[in-house]
Simulated scan of single mutants.
Amino acid sequence: MSIGIIGSGALGSNVARALAKKGIAATISNSRGPESLASLVQELGPSIKAGTTAEAASADIVFAAVRWTDAEKVLSGLPAWNGRIVVDGTNPVEFLDPNSPDAKDPTNPLAAYGIKAVDLGDKYSSEVISQFVPGARVVKAFNHLGVNVLSEPEVAGGKRVLFYSGDDADAKAEVRKIIEDIGFSPVDLGSLDVGGPLASLPFGSLAAQNFIKIQ
């Protein structure tokens, strides 16, 4: 199974680091083009190569590692997904300019963290992302932990737990294998309708929970 990563920010680059540590091949992309990723791929080594967004999106398993505010524009313009797997690592939050009035809004409990929640009405994040990638098999994963620990799955004599959920059993099995291969302990939260809201930042009950499975 080939792997693509759309987005080279904190999430995308740390997913790439986790894969690179285990020598797992992947193509990473961003909106600025492969040339802008030269220093990152040099750091990560030969298993990770830079490509265009279209090249990354053509992989069998594609990590959506873009900011929520960019997701529709980036994902909706790609070719048909035709049953390929999309790992939805997004969260419905907007990053705030520290000098903006929003960053000092006393009614926003997340202002101190530099973010605010995006109102999705009665929908949850993976439900919205699924609309941007029609024909894809969506698995929610890699979104509930701090991005800086994604390259450090083993800690304190155990393995960090990484939640995942989805509606297609085969797609979930492929993502579970990646989770195991990079050193995490996978925990299946069930369908997207159940697991998506549970693990989605900022208000999911399992969001930001850093559980360790002791071996």
Rank of each mutant, 00 (worst) to 15 (best):
L75I: 15
A64K: 08
V41Y: 06
N30A: 02
S36P: 04
L96C: 07
P92I: 11
V87N: 00
G33T: 13
G45N: 11
L75P: 02
N82H: 13
L75T: 13
I85R: 00
N108I: 10
D97F: 09
N82Q: 15
V62M: 05
A64Y: 04
K49M: 12
T69W: 03
D105T: 10
P92T: 14
F63M: 14
A103K: 03
A57H: 05
F95K: 13
E43A: 12
A65Q: 09
L110K: 00
T107Q: 15
T69L: 14
N82M: 02
G83N: 00
W81A: 07
A25E: 12
P79T: 05
G45S: 11
F63R: 08
E72G: 11
D88G: 05
A112S: 13
W81Q: 06
P79L: 10
N30D: 04
L37A: 12
V87P: 00
A54V: 14
F63L: 14
P106Q: 08
A56Y: 00
E55A: 11
T53M: 14
P34K: 09
S29P: 03
I85H: 01
A111P: 05
A54M: 11
V66P: 03
W81C: 10
D102I: 07
S100Y: 09
Q42L: 15
E94L: 12
T53I: 15
I24T: 07
L40F: 05
V74T: 14
S100H: 02
P101D: 00
N30S: 11
K73V: 14
S58I: 10
A50V: 01
T69N: 14
E35H: 12
S29F: 02
L40Q: 03
A71S: 14
L44S: 01
A26Y: 04
G83C: 09
W68P: 06
I48N: 00
T69P: 03
F95H: 15
W68V: 06
T27E: 04
R84H: 10
T107E: 14
P101H: 03
G51C: 08
D97L: 07
E35K: 15
S47P: 01
G33V: 13
L110N: 04
S58N: 12
A59Y: 04
D60M: 04
I24H: 00
S47I: 05
A103N: 10
R84L: 08
S36Y: 09
P98A: 13
A64M: 11
P106V: 11
V74L: 04
A112Y: 00
P101V: 03
S29K: 02
R67G: 15
S29L: 07
R32L: 03
A56C: 09
A64W: 02
V74C: 12
I24L: 13
A57K: 09
S31Y: 06
T69Y: 09
L78C: 11
R84W: 07
D97Q: 07
Y113A: 10
Q42W: 06
A26R: 01
A65Y: 01
T52E: 09
V93F: 06
S29A: 15
V41P: 04
N99S: 15
P79W: 05
N99A: 14
